[in-house]
Simulated scan of single mutants.
Amino acid sequence: MRLPLQDDESSEEDPAREKRALIGLSLVSGVGAQRMRALLATFDTPSSVFQASRSALTRVDGIGPQTAEAILTFDDRAAVEREMERAEKLDATLLSPWDERFPDRLREIYDPPAFLWMRGTLRPTEGPMITIVGTRRCTDYGRTQAHHFAAELTRRGFTIVSGLAYGVDAAAHRGALDAGGRTLAVLGSGVGRIYPQKHTGLAERITEQGAVLSEYGLDADPDASNFPERNRILSGLSLGTLVVESYSEGGALITARLSLEQNREVFAVPGAVTKAPSRGTNRLIQRGHAKLVLEVEDLLEELPDVTVEDPDTVEAETVSAEQGPDPTEALSGEEEKLYEALTETPVHIDALCEETGLDPSTALPILLKLEFKGLVHQMAGKQFYRA
Rank of each mutant, 00 (worst) to 15 (best):
V273I: 15
P277L: 08
P277K: 02
G280Y: 04
T281H: 00
R283T: 14
R283H: 12
L284S: 11
A290V: 03
A290W: 06
L292P: 05
L292N: 06
L294W: 12
V296D: 01
E297Q: 15
E297L: 08
E301R: 11
E301H: 09
L303H: 03
D305Y: 10
D305I: 00
D305T: 14
D305G: 11
D305P: 00
V306H: 09
V308H: 08
D310S: 10
A316S: 13
S320H: 02
E322M: 11
E322G: 04
G324H: 06
D326Y: 07
D326G: 07
E329N: 07
S332M: 01
E336I: 04
E336L: 15
Y339P: 08
A341L: 02
A341G: 13
V347Q: 14
D350P: 04
C353S: 06
C353K: 00
E354L: 14
D359S: 02
P360H: 03
S361N: 11
S361W: 06
S361E: 13
T362C: 06
T362N: 02
L364M: 13
L364E: 08
I366N: 05
G374R: 05
V376M: 04
M379P: 02
M379F: 13
A380D: 14
A380H: 12
G381P: 10
G381W: 09
K382R: 14
Q383W: 08
Q383I: 02
Q383Y: 09
